[in-house]
Computed example of a mutant assay.
Amino acid sequence: MSRKARMSRKWRIVAAVVAGFTAMSLAACGGDGEAGTDSFAVGLLLPNRTTPRWEEWDRPLIEQQLKERCPSCTVEYANAENDVANQRQQMVSMITKGVRVLILDPADTKALRSSIQEAREAGVPVVAYDRLAEGPISGFVSFNGAQVGRLQGEALLKAMADKGNGGNVVMMNGDPTTSNAAWFRRGALSVLTGEVKIIRSYDTQGWRPENAHANMSAAIAALGPDRIGGVLAANDDIAAGVISALKRARVKELPPVTGQDADLDAVQRIVKGEQYMTVYKPFGTQAAAVAAMAVALGRGEDGRDVATTTYDSPTTKNIPSVLLDPTAVTVGNIEQTLVEDGVYTIDQICIRELRPACDAAGLTR
């Protein structure tokens, strides 16, 4: 199936989920009669290409949602490639070109504070997407990070109990330059504290699997694999590095490893029994919410008309926000979540070498 065909199929399935945000955005813009009557440019800035979701899901879904809400609007797109200086320049370039609103997933949530202030002074509102940015942002759209961490922690406790593993956990956190990393960690610790012992905790620069591999290798060398009962990995890239380190160390029975983002590789690792779980965040719903807020702000309207709550950053209080609910995915509910939502087909997950494992998991009949 071609990428274009896959995206078409995915969009047909998520359309029903995002209909509520479509209605919300039209109401904020004065109803169907006024929707799309003006045109302006929206800047979309994503942080890296390391995490598959940004290019595979978020960019095309946001662009499509923006086009549906404002047919005459255009999108200026840039990817920071994990370089905050690059993202600063991209923001300056977009403001110079005359974008009316920015959707920003920051490469560094603190370092872009001055750039966001400059955007505010230029009259360009900034909507923080997925990661909360410091500075005078006008809106925030994400999944509830505390709930992400709680789902990971709860799943890890269950998996460790099911395997009869000891109560020692290695925490493989995200990049500390992003606010989400601390958010996820707090959510996980709210579940794990008092139930297990955190014997090692690492930050993963750039959310890169090679850095997670190095950290996990250090943990194995210091502790020995037998003392590691489970690994709280903040996302699927980190989980990939953790699992590669465990396999390289010739650990025969892998401890339970968590993840996040429902990357295809991670789902296949779950089927194989190498990764215990991931956290699924329906990106179509998130894209719909951020597009609704960006179009409202671009039209000079109030982001609170789209927001469902407020959230505080270290620099800004009561930010109009949409915080969505994530879902835990294990081998037992892949079909009921990712397949039914059109994220992946059974054929995409169950490649030839995984057919026996998929048969055992009940994914192929």
Rank of each mutant, 00 (worst) to 15 (best):
V75I: 07
I62H: 00
K4M: 08
L297G: 00
A219I: 10
E63K: 09
V306A: 02
V306P: 03
I198Y: 02
E56V: 11
L66S: 01
D305L: 14
I62Y: 05
R150C: 06
A41C: 10
F21N: 09
V306L: 04
Y311W: 15
A328T: 03
M293R: 03
V124Y: 05
I243Y: 00
A296Q: 06
V17M: 15
V126N: 09
K281D: 03
G342K: 06
N144L: 14
A328R: 07
V271Y: 09
A240Q: 06
S2E: 04
D312R: 07
D58N: 12
Y276V: 00
R131Y: 01
C358S: 01
R304H: 10
G36I: 07
R355K: 15
V331K: 15
P320F: 03
A35V: 14
P282H: 04
P225S: 12
W11P: 08
D108M: 07
M160V: 04
Y344K: 05
E81R: 13
S313C: 11
A214V: 09
S179V: 08
A16G: 15
P176C: 04
D38T: 15
K67W: 02
L66Q: 00
E121K: 14
V257N: 09
R248Y: 10
D162P: 00
A27C: 04
V231P: 00
L192N: 02
R355A: 01
I137Q: 02
S72H: 13
R6E: 13
V99I: 05
E81D: 14
E340N: 13
A119D: 06
T364P: 07
M216R: 14
A262R: 10
R269P: 02
A181F: 04
V290W: 01
R131L: 04
A78P: 11
Y276H: 03
G123S: 02
Q336D: 15
D105Q: 10
P47V: 04
Y202R: 04
A80N: 13
I319H: 02
R12Q: 14
L45P: 05
P225H: 14
G224Y: 08
T278A: 12
L61C: 04
D162G: 08
D236E: 12
L45V: 15
S72G: 15
D226P: 03
S2A: 04
